[in-house]
Computed example of a mutant assay.
Amino acid sequence: MTDWITTPLDPRIVRGALDLERTAHGVLPHRLPAWARKQFPDAYLRMVEAQPSGVRLAFRTRATAVELDVLPTKTVYQGAPAQPDGVYELLVDGRPSGRASVSGGNVHTVDMATGATVTRPGPTDTVRFTDLADGAKDVEIWLPQTEITELIALRTDAPVEPAPDRGRRVWLHHGSSISHGSTAGSPTTTWPALAAARGGVELINLGLGGNALLDPFTARAMRDTPADLISLKIGINLVNADLMRLRGFSPAVHGFLDTLREGHPTTPLLVVSPILCPLHEDTPGPTAPDFDAPELRFRALGDPSDRSGGRLTLRVIRDELSRITGQRAADDPNLHYLDGRSLYGEADFRQLPLPDRLHPDAAGHRRIGERFAERAFGAGGPFAVGGG
């Protein structure tokens, strides 16, 4: 019989979260701090910030067996195809070494037509990884990027200590559902996770599905988070939500950047505009599900002729982000701009179209991650070692 050792789940072990909330069951990783969560009324944002994209357990051990008790909350969208269970990925010394899923947990159902939600409680479950090689090794368990995951207990058959500090730089990234990885194949194959692995950096992923709306509390949370590199990918959800006009957008971008610079005055800061999305290149939002389509797809409800009144489209946003960063770079040499179409453009759309008209598939994530790593972390890039 295995003699299990239980290790406390605390910030020494749990990485990529800005807050760990103590619950009746264990701890719940959050990607926005407690004070910020008090400043927004949006139930969808409350859900996605608690989905642990980029959050992982990291420790060093000689263990050959690892068990993690969890209480997931799985989200189901009425009218959309059923999603597979989330994936827990095991890395040993940085190499993929196993995958697992659990079938238990709560089920959160969202009616896409009305926005109504209902949550059905469910049982805890256990993720198991066995037959690991004996000997000291660095172990990471990446949590499912689209399932809220309460961590109940970590058990191993040998003692655990926090993963040693390898001196890797910390990359803090903020974006919307594409950065969140809502359509990626697994937590380590979201495009930010792929880029982080290639860049040799520690990722804090504040990709928030349905958001990245220039919220001041997100800017303050990023301001207060230690980081060596920062990127900000904004645009698509401002169009999807039809949230503001050009008059409000421009000062909001300045304000977000001003807040970041309060805490990170000289940190390399990369502003990334939206990838190509033909649905909204020249057509404003809002965006809605296309219930007449046989599969989940989205459609634009705006009128292209409204651009003259300040309605935002992706072309308008790219032009304005380029202008703003160019203007500010005269006094801020560590501020950089990247056109998102260099990560995924017209040729990519022809080869790897967006299945629902908004989001790339797993292959699209890989391409975006590889391109970002090349342009940001590669020689001459703003995140290159020693500076671009």
Rank of each mutant, 00 (worst) to 15 (best):
Pro289Met: 00
Gly209Arg: 01
Gln39Ile: 02
Ser231Pro: 08
Ile236Trp: 00
Leu71His: 09
Arg307Ala: 15
Arg357Thr: 15
Ala362Lys: 06
Phe377Gly: 08
Leu314Thr: 06
Leu91Lys: 00
Pro355Trp: 03
Ala288Val: 11
Glu21Phe: 09
Gly175Trp: 03
Gly309Val: 05
Gly199Asn: 06
Ile368Lys: 08
Val48Ser: 02
Gly381Ile: 10
Leu172Asn: 06
Thr124Asp: 13
Pro123Val: 10
Arg357His: 15
Thr225Val: 09
Asn211Ile: 02
Arg311Pro: 10
Leu296Tyr: 09
Pro164Ile: 05
Ala43Gln: 11
Leu354His: 03
Val239His: 04
Leu172Ile: 05
Pro289Lys: 02
Leu296Phe: 10
Pro360Asn: 00
Val272Asn: 00
Ala24Gly: 12
Tyr77Leu: 12
Leu91Val: 07
Ala133Tyr: 08
Ala163Gln: 09
Phe377Leu: 02
Gly310Asp: 03
Thr6His: 09
Thr146Lys: 14
Arg367Phe: 03
Ala196Val: 02
Leu279Lys: 07
Ala221Asn: 00
Pro251Gln: 01
Phe256Ser: 02
Asp165Val: 06
Ile148Glu: 13
Ile13Thr: 01
Phe40Met: 12
Trp171Arg: 05
Glu346Gly: 13
Ala329Trp: 08
Tyr337Ala: 06
Leu296Val: 12
Ala82Asp: 14
Lys38Pro: 01
Arg366Cys: 10
Tyr337Asn: 03
Ala300Val: 12
Ser179Gln: 10
Gly309Asn: 13
Thr119Tyr: 04
Gly345Cys: 07
Thr190Val: 09
Pro382His: 06
Met1His: 13
His365Thr: 10
Gly199Cys: 10
Asp348Tyr: 11
Leu343Tyr: 04
Leu91Arg: 10
Pro251Asp: 02
Phe291Leu: 14
Glu320Ala: 14
Pro41Asn: 12
Lys38Val: 10
Ala43Glu: 11
Leu314His: 11
His365Arg: 07
Arg56Cys: 08
Pro29Cys: 05
Ile236Pro: 01
Asp242Thr: 07
Pro8Ala: 04
Asp42Arg: 02
Gln39Ser: 12
Ala133Leu: 12
Val14Pro: 01
Pro286Gln: 08
Asp282Cys: 10
Ala252Val: 10
Val127Ala: 05
Leu45Asn: 08
His174Val: 13
Ala80Glu: 12
Asp356Ala: 06
Arg341Gln: 15
Arg299Gln: 14
Leu270Val: 13
Arg350Asn: 14
Ala330Trp: 11
Leu28Asp: 07
Pro216Phe: 01
Leu90Trp: 04
Pro52Val: 00
Ala36Gln: 05
Thr117Pro: 00
Arg198Cys: 07
Thr146Val: 15
Tyr88Phe: 15
Ala373Thr: 03
Asn211Leu: 00
Phe372His: 05
Glu370Leu: 08
Glu295Met: 13
Gly209Trp: 05
Leu243Met: 12
